[in-house]
Design a binder for these strands. Structure first.
Length: 466
DNA sequence: ATGTAC
């Protein structure tokens, strides 16, 4: 009996030595080689029956291998990506397509689409829409869970607020910057803080105080609050065609949502240790598991919290302007929804994609100095009833800081009469795709109803000022 | 995007 006999049985690596040791014991006990090889075949076929006996060590190893193989098989990527529709493919970098292809190879993937603002992100690309069955991917939603838009159109002429007044209102009623919250005596209240779901998980209870401090704030990166002129070419919802003063905000779930995302994506990665490296950040949680249910609860709470942030800003500014709101639109664009797709319930992840069911209103911003669009969804099935969430980056943050000159940004702002508070080169209009092209690439997905031109914009100050 | 740590 030697190692060759044993490896011929299909045993591998350390299993061979352990099998050989057991075989020697059986030889000592007087068994022939063929008898021992038969016993070894038995161990291979039914390792569970040999635990604790003379073949116990080998049985343990085989059981471990079996478990690992099963885990691996459940996580194995499809050989070929499921097909999916790409909108505005000429506007999309290859890296984003590669990420979407990987997502469409996941065993839980059922359908997907890529929006024309797509660019590379962690896991699913920004602008990616992915439908899965029975599972949710924390990084299919993204770090900023519930990131969303809100527009208030006031029944006021745009010149009712000059830029000095607009700056003063934004300074008073908004807060920007990573880690930033209100001072103790400035804190706001909202019914979302009374939500029973805060008490369902230790993680949520732990994040509650941070959420209280940051309610009604806007964070950093591409988040903004801006006054501008909203132009409605045809009447809608009781509002006459015309040009109005309006407020547009982009904000998310702040530190609360970011920590929820971090916690659950780590958990998902640990639960899928054998997932291919290319799909590591696409690790998922089964919705019938406790972890999956917990994420679903936390994600939806973060979604409601993000909308509450907008609501606070808009409510306070309307009050300060002493005006009614003639038209109010809002939508989340980083979230997962249960949605009927071809007659079955799937989990549709939109990571930087606007829900665009038939008749559904949404907001697609361009950049700090480019127009934002009020759109109405067409319910396009091939796009899983979605549209882009913005213009999308054409330059990464660092590339933008290298490539774009301050004076060019200033000229761009001046040409459009935009006043900027804060802002960084990494958010310069030149770092973004031309929103007109991005809108033109999704005529199958949405109709454009109105257009907003920013005039006084507040953002976090970037690492390179403008 | 967040505000700290594979």
């Amino acid at each position: 009996m030697n190692g060759k006999h044993i490896s011929n049985l299909g045993l591998k690596g350390a299993e061979i030595g352990v099998a050989l040791k057991a075989a020697e014991l059986r030889e000592t006990a007087g068994l022939e080689r063929d008898e021992i090889l038969n016993e070894l075949r038995g161990v291979q076929q039914r390792p569970g029956e040999y635990v604790g006996g003379v073949y116990g060590d080998l049985a343990d190893m085989l059981l471990a291998r079996q478990a690992n193989d099963e885990l691996h098989a459940a996580d194995a990527l499809r050989e070929h990506a499921l097909s999916y529709k790409v909108y505005g493919g000429n506007l999309i970098e290859p890296g984003a397509l590669a990420q979407m292809n990987t997502a469409m190879r996941l065993p839980i993937a059922r359908a997907g689409a890529l929006m024309p603002d797509a660019h590379v992100g962690y896991g699913l690309p920004i602008g990616g829409v992915l439908a899965t069955e029975g599972a949710v991917i924390p990084y299919g939603v993204g770090v900023d869970i519930g990131c969303s838009m809100r527009l208030s159109v006031y029944p006021l002429a745009p010149d009712r607020l000059d830029s000095r007044g607009a700056v003063a209102l934004l300074q008073k009623h908004t807060r920007f910057g990573a880690g930033v919250g209100w001072d103790k005596r400035e804190r706001l209240d909202h019914e979302v803080l009374d939500d029973a779901d805060w008490d369902t998980l230790p993680l949520l209870r732990h994040l509650y105080d941070k959420a209280v401090t940051q309610l009604g704030t806007s964070g950093s990166g591409n988040h903004f609050a801006e006054f501008g002129t909203f132009t409605l070419p045809a009447p809608m919802s009781g509002l006459e065609a015309g040009t109005y003063l309006a407020l547009l905000t982009h904000s998310g779930s702040r530190g609360f949502g970011a920590q929820v995302a971090g916690h659950f994506t780590n958990l998902a990665e640990r639960l899928h240790p054998t997932l291919d490296a290319s799909a590591k950040k696409l690790a998922w949680l089964n919705l019938d598991s406790e972890e999956g249910q917990n994420y679903w609860t936390a994600m939806n709470l973060a979604g409601r919290y993000a909308l509450a942030n907008h609501e606070q800003i808009h409510q306070r500014i309307a009050r300060a302007l002493d005006t009614e709101v003639a038209l109010e639109v809002s939508n989340s664009h980083n979230l997962a929804w249960k949605q009927q797709v071809d007659g079955r319930e799937l989990i549709v992840h939109r990571k930087g994609a606007t829900p665009a069911a038939a008749g559904q209103l949404g907001l697609i911003p361009g950049s700090m100095a480019d127009p934002a669009y009020l759109v109405r969804g067409k319910g396009e099935a091939a796009a899983l009833e979605s549209a882009s969430h913005g213009a999308g980056r054409q330059l990464g943050r660092k590339a933008a800081e290298r490539a774009i000159a301050k004076k060019d940004v200033q000229a761009y702002l001046n040409e459009r009469g935009v006043t900027l508070i804060g802002g960084g080169i990494d958010e310069a209009p030149q770092a973004y795709k031309r929103v007109e092209q991005v809108i033109a690439a999704q005529t199958e997905l949405v109709d454009v109803l109105g257009q907003f031109q920013p005039q006084v914009v507040r953002m976090d100050s970037g690492s390179e000022d403008i």
